[in-house]
Design a protein around this nucleic acid. Structure first.
Lengths: 341, 341
DNA sequence: TTGTATGCGTTATCAA
DNA sequence: TTGATAACGCATACAA
């Protein structure tokens, strides 16, 4: 392994000068070129562990997510990684299952590993992120809102809920149920608020029995949708406020042979249940059926990750500036100009 | 931040003794308890960076994957993480997109970050993993076969291909196409071999035009299946050798309104195309349709991750033992007894 | 068995 | 601007 002393010797300078060149401090140009030549010739790569120990901060960033199996979050991770890699940071993925205890463990690790920063979609009910901030770590919350004093980037979830509901209204549905995530999860609550608002704008009621708080996974969407279909006064359409809940809803309909309203199967297939409309806030990258009768409101999770990572990078060299809140539109088209590819 | 000297002072011993206690060396019991008490009281956590620098190896493990957006590999990651966490290791996810250059970069990082080990589903055509081995790093290849001199855990892919094909044969299909991944990818090639073998056992031909090498993603499966349907002598069933290709195949059929053979839609729906059977090696966690007419051969990617992680842990304290090759059956039931939950 | 003292490779302080 | 050297926190060789 080649060390900094080897480079120093080869270039005929001190280790301090080599270090300065490598860290962009002011050095006489000819010495700098000599150092670069030596680095190239020896194939020297600084030992990141030693560097971390000395700097008291590594070039690793933690990305703490509720569910790495959710394609939404893996897409977020892609965006984060692309930006972070570019800037020389590595990304560690941490999966919390929305368990505050798991989340706390990972944040501990992040601190004791001297990680440069943390990007987090925080579990509801988890303790605030003040510890990390207090210890001078950069923190950016993404997707889900947290305490005001930390940087965060979220979608305009109320607007997303409104727009998805409106597109169902535009298709002629009137009795629209909303299957969303846990009450405490900000995205779930806000998208449901958007649903309520869209109905209100149309002079429609949003009765309690049409708002279901499930978990934000496939089984949650499945059970909730099945329940809605079984209950008296079944809805003529269902709004799923995230991708996995949407998958569950579609599968529940398929299992019961309830056709999608507006599809070719709508008429002709003999079935006991009335055709039902489906709206989804999010995408279905692994759909096994046609989705053209589904009112999809595609999101841009990658853009969310990109923006969050960029905020973290800025925060890393400016720890004292006030917290910033960025609200993205959320859809790929709208973010196109705003978020770098 | 509390350091080892603080603990030493508190316990009335030297830093060396504290270190020994923490690392399980032999120490007089009463001193050990004193140290433990001090650790607890001060809430001491060793600085992992310093430890890495000194030991020349960290407690981070790299998990290098071709596609973190593929649910198969995220499930592998879950298995790896569970085992690794338990043993005190953190897991870094690295995404290569099967690009040898990206893979090489990550392996470089793993080496220069002094990571304890690497778990990798290697990109075909990537340079062998000898470098890492030579530098004394523990390496375990998973899912895909690599050079014989490195530990590896794979599925019995030929058998998987055979069984999936057989289940299509059992359902009465005779002209069965195979859509698999790139020739160079061992899993793709071996599962296709299994397909060929199953047909041969039945005295059936496996003509070249029925074997398609696509990419191992949704678009690959989609295009390949569409092509098969368009060609003269279309198959009566399609075997997809991985989950994403299966998604693509199902969506191609749905888009063309080709009913699944054996489903309720099989008769009744007027369509130009004949009903087609589908077999898939893998699972469809995000299917938006019923899958009971699909011949699914479920896999156990989590078990793959668990086994690979356990092999890595063993390798970590025994770097010189000969390379081991573990071949898992691959299905959840068969692995149930073999792979710890 | 325990303590002392050195070194891991880098960055930062200080004097020149 | 540059160089010599101390320090980051821990583990271990060596001495006791």
């Amino acid at each position: 392994m080649t060390r900094i002393v080897d480079v120093a010797r080869q270039a005929g300078v001190s280790t301090a000068t080599v270090s300065r060149v490598l860290n962009g401090k002011t050095v006489r140009p000819e010495l700098a070129t000599a150092v670069h030549a030596a680095v190239a010739e020896l194939g020297y790569v600084p030992d990141r562990t030693a560097r971390s120990l000395r700097r008291r901060s590594s070039d690793v960033v933690a990305l703490v997510l509720p569910d790495v199996e959710n394609p939404f979050f893996t897409a977020v991770a892609r965006g984060v990684e692309d930006v972070a890699q570019q800037a020389g940071y590595s990304v560690v993925l941490c999966n919390t299952d929305d368990d505050p205890a798991k989340e706390a463990r990972y944040l501990d690790v992040a601190e004791h590993e001297n990680m440069a920063g943390v990007l987090i979609a925080a579990a509801p009910g988890a303790p605030p992120l003040g510890n990390l901030l207090a210890r001078g770590r950069a923190v950016v919350a993404l997707d889900r809102a947290v305490r005001d004093d930390v940087d965060q980037v979220t979608f305009d979830n109320a607007a997303l809920g409104r727009r998805a509901t409106r597109s169902l209204l535009d298709r002629g549905f009137r009795r629209i149920a909303c299957v969303t995530g846990p009450r405490e999860t900000s995205t779930a609550a806000q998208r449901a608020e958007g649903w309520r608002a869209a109905l209100a704008e149309e002079g429609l009621d949003a009765p309690d029995e049409l708002l279901i708080h499930a978990n934000f996974r496939v089984d949650g969407g499945y059970a909730a949708t099945a329940g809605l279909l079984d209950a008296a006064g079944a809805p003529d359409a269902v709004l799923a406020t995230n991708n996995l809940v949407g998958v569950g809803a579609l599968r529940a309909l398929a299992d019961r042979r309830v056709p999608l309203a507006g599809s070719a199967d709508d008429r002709g297939t003999a079935t006991g249940s009335a055709a039902t409309g489906v709206g989804i806030v999010g995408d279905l990258p692994f759909a096994t059926s046609r989705t053209d009768q589904v009112a999809l409101l595609p999101l841009n999770p990658r853009g969310l990750g990109v923006t969050a990572a960029e905020m973290l990078l800025e925060r890393l060299d400016g720890l004292d500036s006030p917290a910033r809140h960025v609200v993205l539109d959320g859809t790929p088209a709208a973010d196109a100009g705003r978020v770098p590819a």
